[in-house]
Design a protein around this nucleic acid. Structure first.
Lengths: 208, 208
DNA sequence: TGTGCGGTGTTAATGCTGTTCACATGGCAC
DNA sequence: GTGCCATGTGAACAGCATTAACACCGCACA
């Protein structure tokens, strides 16, 4: 046998950090958002249960690292989606649709960012990364609402409707079949359009 | 010492089920959504760690019971809020505001219903109770959209924006001060109005 | 007024978890 | 070639959910 038919057999794993993150995502995908266990991830990576602590301060730190990756991936995807549309309203709708699409395609990654066991206050970078995700639609919002304060409100409104549909979909509120996903994407996109047109400057402010 | 300076000292607690639920809510309020532990709740109720299993099949069942209480309380509150408004659009806005208000006032209860460790599929009553919460705005939605299918879409859209703001607030995305809560309520209410007017029949369907 | 049964509690034990510690290994800089 | 340091190991600990066997005691029934 060559010395390493399986890289995990070596005393030094070589890429344990990534292996652990991958195993964690696997576990979340298989067992749900709380099915992740340091011990099980270690087992899958072929190392002892103490090994992860050389790479992460604790269990939460591993989850935080994954949440960071999730936000980065979201930012990338949503920026692509936004830049594929021309008009601000369409850009906001594209963002909302992409948000729901991400929750479908990368359910495990999506689950890391909300409701995971992460005390966000302990990870300042996480908050910033989360904000950057919403910053993706700041430019189109500003084209609709030149007042920065109003634009920010539009950003949050569109983010809220997108996140709401994604959360409903994830919880099965809209059903568990594939069509539920399609309805969620359409609903989110249509909701974003409605909010954009209602909150855009030039329209009358809503009564009360 | 008298035999029972503390009612919890008796061999039979008398109201352990409720005591455990109360302790669980206390723990979630103190330590966050995942700070709940059967063992700690038992300690606070003054019983052994095995006692809870006389009242709940397992840890998840206790959480499910609380989620059920949460949905019931939501239904009650939201129905009140809706019936306090006259016009359908205002009713939807009142629902959204009340939704966020609930997330503020009863954070622990709110946390039980989303992202808790409950496998909803195992608790059919939970799904029904969750649906009933949204049914609260079915009547006003039907007044705006006589077509039941369109009305349901409006229900989900308003629910999504309300839930999105509540989730953002809970995660600190909108800030952690009291004013963030106010902004979330206003945003949710305004978003609900915008969605209601955009999706109401008689208006032109959104382009695309 | 006794009596026994069932619901509700206890103790003890199991196996899993996160975390820490002292120690082992081995690749890389010198 | 040698020694250092990052990265691994194994053993240990405490806390957790869960189960099983046993203890208590109030209430229905005689």
């Amino acid at each position: 046998m060559t010395p390493k038919p399986d890289p995990r057999r070596r005393y030094h794993h070589g890429d344990l950090r990534n292996a652990l993150e991958a195993a964690a995502l696997e576990l979340v995908a298989e067992r749900g958002p709380h099915g992740f266990t340091l011990a099980e991830a270690s087992r899958r990576a072929g190392v002892s249960v103490a090994a992860p602590f050389r790479h992460f301060a604790n269990r939460e730190a591993l989850l935080a690292a994954l949440a960071l990756r999730s936000f980065a991936e979201q930012e990338r995807r949503f920026a692509d989606a936004v830049s594929a549309a021309a008009e601000p309203v369409a850009q906001l709708a594209a963002f909302a649709a992409a948000y729901v699409q991400f929750a479908i395609d990368e359910r495990a990654l999506f689950d890391m960012t909300f409701g995971a066991d992460i005390d966000k206050a302990s990870y300042a970078e996480l908050e910033q990364a989360g904000q950057r995700v919403l910053d993706v639609i700041l430019a189109p919002a500003l084209r609709l609402c030149p007042d920065p304060r109003a634009a920010l409100e539009l950003v949050y409104a569109v983010g809220a409707v997108a996140h709401g549909y994604a959360a409903f979909l994830r919880e099965g509120v809209l059903g568990i079949d594939q069509e539920a996903g399609v309805r969620a994407m359409h609903g989110a996109a249509r909701g974003a359009e409605a909010l954009a047109e209602a909150l855009a400057d030039g329209d009358r402010p809503m009564k009360l």
